[in-house]
Design a protein around this nucleic acid. Structure first.
Length: 444
RNA sequence: GGAGCUUUAGCCAAGCGGUAAGGCAAGGGACUGCAACUCCCUGAUCCCCGGUUCAAAUCCGGGAGGCUCCUCCA
């Protein structure tokens, strides 16, 4: 499949390092607060990418980290009056709840900074030894000047960065571009190191975790586009200095979610927490899938409201089809009709093109229409079964699937009575049975 | 000041040189015991001005909006 690579600014063919296996890592949250619907975009996107690759037969190993030690966490612990560890635990749990709420697979690897400290210290130590980093006071900094190609990912030249730098240049750095690998720290959680008591800097953890988990280069490194500079640029720099590679063959970045015309961010305070989403979370997923992951989405309540009937239409078709197969005992067939294979191919073709989910959604809509026509018309069993199998697969890949269960024996009897009552034009009895079925949770 | 992205019907949106997908909303019709669902029909000189080409929403130049990054942020 083709994927847009931020590193080369080109759409490239995905060529897994190890045949039939794709390794993915994307930057996870600093766990000091709940996540908002913009933070949910990488969760949803990479979950979708993973499911698509699995649908195509790849084994996917995906990891996403937790930054569980950080000054924000320390601040939050003071606000909440609990320890840093407790803050981290609380928001990791909340994050995982949100992941499941968003119908994303929660089985990815979840490395934590606090579980990677020895490796991080070794890594920094090695960088010092090769001259790519230096100690200054109790801190250690990466020496950007040691890497001529610094800035490749974000298309920046170091002299321009110096001109544009708005950060105050701190005396302890050789250059304003240098970034901290280790910071002297004497409060809260702290670790002993060759440079004294302190904490690791933010940019080091990801490359160390990747190396620890995967033992070398990975296929895809992802994250929000905001991380391209400086975070990912700095990750690459450190890795280049030590391992002489760029960590991942393909760097993928999802665009942000705005709140209306504004940027949505915790610091601006205009956020919608995932846990506070009013609608079915699948409707939010659909909202995102209807746009390319590389385009900014401007979230409004109106836009969200618009996707709700769209999801309902898909659900309705699926429910009707499921009910029909249930009542007629047609689930056992694994027939794939030519028609359904054509839909599947169109769906795959869309996703092969850098995860063109808007076009994938179009295929789902087209299939939904065909299902409705078939259910209204000839009701060919083979076709209906194969449509079901294909739609189910598509909805699973996009995380729009529901958990449908077959009717109980009791409901099935009620259902048959309902059909009979309608045939006999006993409408009051029919309505009664219908209400009973609906209250029993049967989707008619 | 530097870098980049973006502008397609009321709204979302695809499109990557060959004559504008799809969805939502709206209007009209069909189906239906009621309700819901569903189906059919109706809509765009692709921000503006030049240029290249037999052919441009698509390429080039200029202009005007909108956005982002260069600073913690997915």
């Amino acid at each position: 499949m083709k994927l847009y690579n931020t590193y080369t600014n080109k759409i490239e063919e995905l060529k897994p390092i190890k045949e039939n296996t794709v390794t993915i890592y994307y930057c996870g949250p600093t766990v000091y607060n709940y996540i908002h619907i913009g933070n949910a975009r990488p969760i949803i996107f990479f979950d979708t990418l993973k499911k698509y690759l699995e649908h195509k037969g790849y084994k996917v190993i995906m990891a996403s980290n937790f930054t569980d030690i950080n000054e924000k966490i320390l601040n939050q612990s003071k606000i909440e009056g609990i320890s840093e560890m407790e803050v981290a635990e609380k928001y990791i749990k909340a994050y995982m709840d949100d992941v499941r709420f968003l119908n994303a697979d929660d089985s990815f690897l979840k490395p934590r900074v606090t579980e990677t400290i020895p490796e991080i210290i070794d890594f920094i130590d090695s960088l010092v030894k090769v001259g790519a980093a230096y100690k200054s006071g109790g801190d250690v900094y990466y020496r950007v000047s040691s890497l001529p190609e610094y800035g490749r990912l974000s298309n920046r030249k170091t002299d321009e960065l110096i001109q544009g730098a708005r950060v105050e240049v701190r005396d302890e750095k050789e250059s304003g571009l240098d970034f901290a690998l280790w910071k002297e720290f004497h409060e809260g959680i702290k670790y002993d190191s060759p440079w004294g008591e302190g904490r690791p800097g933010w940019h080091t953890e990801c490359c160390v975790m990747i190396h620890k988990l995967f033992g070398g280069m990975i296929d895809i490194h992802g994250g929000g586009a905001d991380l391209i500079f400086p975070h990912h640029e700095n990750e690459i720099a450190q890795n280049e200095s030590l391992y002489h590679n760029r960590i991942a063959n393909i760097w993928m970045h999802n665009a942000r979610v705005n709140f209306g015309q504004e940027k949505m961010s915790k610091s601006l305070g205009n956020v919608i927490w995932v846990k506070d989403l009013k609608c079915d979370p699948r409707a939010y997923r659909l909202l995102l899938l209807k746009s390319s992951y590389r385009n900014i989405v401007s979230y409004t309540d109106e836009l969200q409201a618009q996707t709700i009937p769209e999801l309902e239409k898909i659900d309705t078709a699926m429910n009707k089809l499921f009910l029909y197969l249930d009542v007629n005992d047609l689930f056992n067939s694994s027939i794939q009709s030519l028609e359904s294979l054509d839909f599947m191919k169109r769906f795959d073709d869309a996703n092969e093109e850098d995860m063109n989910t808007p076009n994938g959604v179009t295929v789902i809509n087209d299939l939904v229409k065909e299902i409705n026509l078939e259910l209204r018309g000839r009701k060919d069993s083979d076709i209906l079964v194969s449509y079901y199998n294909v739609l189910k697969e598509m909805l699973y890949v996009y995380g729009l699937n529901q958990n449908l269960e077959r009717m109980s024996l009791e409901n099935r009897n009620l259902y048959n009575e309902w059909i009979d009552a309608r045939k006999e034009k006993d409408f009051s009895k029919a309505d009664e049975l219908r209400n009973k079925l609906l209250s029993n949770g049967v989707k008619l």
